[in-house]
Simulated scan of single mutants.
Amino acid sequence: MKKILLVLTSVSELGDTGEKTGYNVAEAAHPWKVFKDSGHFVDFASIKGGVPPRDEVDTSDPIQVAFTEDETTKAGLYNTARVDVVDPSQYDAVYLVGGHGTMWDFPDSEGLQKLVASVYNAGGVVGAVCHGPAGLLNVELENGLRLVEGKRVAAFTNDEEVAADKDKIVPFFLADRLEEQGATHVSAGVFEEKVIVDERLVTGQNPASAGGVAKEMEKLLAEVIHQEKAEEQDESEALRAEKDAEKAAAAAAAESDH
Rank of each mutant, 00 (worst) to 15 (best):
L147K: 07
F172L: 11
L5E: 06
C130N: 14
D70G: 04
P133I: 03
S256Y: 00
Q181A: 13
H40Q: 02
N121F: 07
V213N: 08
E242T: 04
G76L: 13
I225P: 00
K74N: 09
I196Q: 01
S236A: 10
S236M: 07
A26Y: 06
L174K: 06
E27Y: 09
T80S: 08
V126F: 04
F191K: 08
E142W: 05
T73R: 13
G127Q: 05
K229M: 12
I196W: 08
V202C: 07
G132F: 12
L220W: 00
A214I: 02
T72V: 11
L221E: 05
E246V: 04
A251S: 09
D167T: 03
V125T: 08
G211I: 01
E161Y: 10
Q90N: 12
A164S: 11
E232R: 13
V86A: 04
G212A: 06
D108H: 13
K36I: 04
D257L: 14
A222L: 11
A241F: 06
E246Y: 03
P107C: 13
K74Y: 11
E231L: 07
A253P: 14
E140G: 06
V94L: 10
L145S: 14
E180R: 15
V125F: 05
V186Q: 14
L174M: 10
G50L: 13
D165I: 00
S38Y: 06
E160C: 09
T21W: 00
S12C: 06
S38M: 09
R146T: 01
A251T: 09
A26D: 00
Q113S: 13
E13M: 03
K243W: 06
G49N: 08
R240H: 01
A163N: 05
G101Y: 08
H131G: 11
G98K: 00
K219L: 13
V197S: 09
N138S: 08
I63Y: 03
T157I: 02
V170H: 09
Q113L: 07
N121Q: 03
V125L: 05
D244E: 15
S10F: 05
M103W: 08
R146Q: 14
P52Q: 03
S256F: 09
V57H: 02
S256T: 08
Y91D: 10
D244S: 11
S236R: 15
H226L: 07
E149Q: 15
E246C: 00
D234I: 08
D70F: 07
Q205S: 06
L145V: 00
N143I: 04
L136E: 00
D92W: 00
K36F: 12
T157A: 14
S209Q: 13
V57C: 02
L147V: 12
E199H: 12
E223M: 11
V42Q: 01
S38H: 12
T184R: 13
V116H: 06
V126T: 05
A251I: 01
R240K: 13
I169C: 09
D105W: 10
W32L: 03
K20Q: 11
K20E: 11
H30D: 03
